[in-house]
Simulated assay, not measured.
Amino acid sequence: MFVLTIDQARSRSSADRIPELLDLLAAVPTVLPWERSVGDEAQGVVADAAAAVDAVLLCLRAGGWYIGIGIGEVEQPYPRSPREARGSAFVAARHAVERAKKTGERAPLAVEASDAGGPAAAEAEGVLALLGRHVLERSEAEWRIIDLLQPGKRGTQTAVARTLGISPQAVSKAAARAAWHEEHAVRPAAARLLAWADADR
């Protein structure tokens, strides 16, 4: 099980963004829903590793969030709210989000496993940090293009070029600069490492 604890950066000098975060993550499937946990922080419990990757990359794109992924147990029966839940995954997520605040120039995320899943958790963190670097560096112009691209579909770059009134070459160059193809190739690997860390506990 994966607990994501997400803390707002610079919350003392900026407006409350938790409602914005909950809207952003609403489509990501959970076992226990995304909720404000305390103050400027939100939590959710996710069973699917790919959903955890999706949530991380959404938060990185939005910017201004510290993201901790905790891998471990969530005690059953599950309550209605993550605020009422207990288990080692919550402890790991707390450690992870505190470490995410100290990543410096790197993507502000960390992954912690409660038991023996440490090596795979560290590898998952490394892959997510590399993905996060590309997400953080993308321009608004690049996002306009890659948001319209569809992985694995032939002719998608030509269709996007026609939609935006630009050349297919411009679309291709933007996708290359943004490492869009690499992101979609690597997302499953990040999810697989998270799943291995969960299975190894």
Rank of each mutant, 00 (worst) to 15 (best):
residue 1 M to V: 13
residue 7 D to V: 03
residue 8 Q to G: 05
residue 12 R to L: 14
residue 13 S to Q: 14
residue 14 S to N: 11
residue 14 S to C: 07
residue 16 D to Q: 06
residue 18 I to Q: 06
residue 19 P to C: 02
residue 21 L to S: 13
residue 24 L to W: 00
residue 24 L to D: 01
residue 25 L to C: 13
residue 26 A to D: 05
residue 26 A to G: 04
residue 28 V to G: 02
residue 30 T to C: 11
residue 32 L to N: 02
residue 33 P to Q: 03
residue 34 W to C: 07
residue 36 R to M: 11
residue 38 V to R: 10
residue 40 D to A: 10
residue 43 Q to I: 10
residue 44 G to Y: 04
residue 47 A to L: 08
residue 48 D to L: 08
residue 48 D to A: 08
residue 50 A to M: 11
residue 51 A to H: 06
residue 55 A to K: 02
residue 56 V to W: 03
residue 59 C to H: 00
residue 60 L to W: 02
residue 61 R to C: 00
residue 63 G to V: 03
residue 66 Y to N: 12
residue 66 Y to K: 09
residue 68 G to R: 01
residue 74 V to A: 01
residue 74 V to W: 05
residue 74 V to F: 03
residue 76 Q to A: 11
residue 77 P to L: 00
residue 78 Y to K: 08
residue 81 S to V: 10
residue 84 E to H: 09
residue 84 E to A: 14
residue 85 A to Q: 03
residue 86 R to D: 14
residue 86 R to C: 12
residue 87 G to V: 05
residue 88 S to F: 09
residue 89 A to C: 04
residue 91 V to K: 03
residue 93 A to I: 14
residue 95 H to L: 12
residue 96 A to I: 13
residue 106 R to K: 14
residue 106 R to P: 06
residue 108 P to K: 01
residue 109 L to N: 04
residue 109 L to T: 05
residue 115 D to Y: 08
residue 116 A to S: 15
residue 117 G to H: 09
residue 121 A to Q: 00
residue 123 E to C: 05
residue 123 E to M: 12
residue 124 A to Q: 05
residue 129 A to D: 08
residue 131 L to Q: 13
residue 132 G to N: 08
residue 132 G to V: 11
residue 133 R to C: 09
residue 134 H to C: 09
residue 135 V to I: 10
residue 135 V to C: 01
residue 144 R to E: 15
residue 146 I to H: 07
residue 146 I to K: 05
residue 148 L to K: 09
residue 152 G to A: 10
residue 152 G to N: 06
residue 153 K to P: 05
residue 156 T to L: 00
residue 156 T to S: 06
residue 157 Q to P: 02
residue 157 Q to Y: 04
residue 158 T to I: 10
residue 159 A to L: 11
residue 162 R to L: 15
residue 164 L to S: 11
residue 165 G to F: 09
residue 167 S to Y: 10
residue 170 A to M: 09
residue 170 A to G: 09
residue 172 S to Y: 01
residue 172 S to L: 00
residue 177 R to D: 02
residue 178 A to K: 07
residue 181 H to L: 13
residue 181 H to Q: 14
residue 182 E to Y: 12
residue 183 E to D: 08
residue 186 V to L: 13
residue 186 V to D: 07
residue 186 V to A: 08
residue 188 P to F: 08
residue 192 R to G: 10
residue 192 R to W: 12
residue 193 L to F: 04
residue 195 A to F: 05
residue 196 W to N: 04
residue 199 A to T: 07
residue 199 A to R: 13
residue 200 D to V: 13
residue 201 R to G: 15
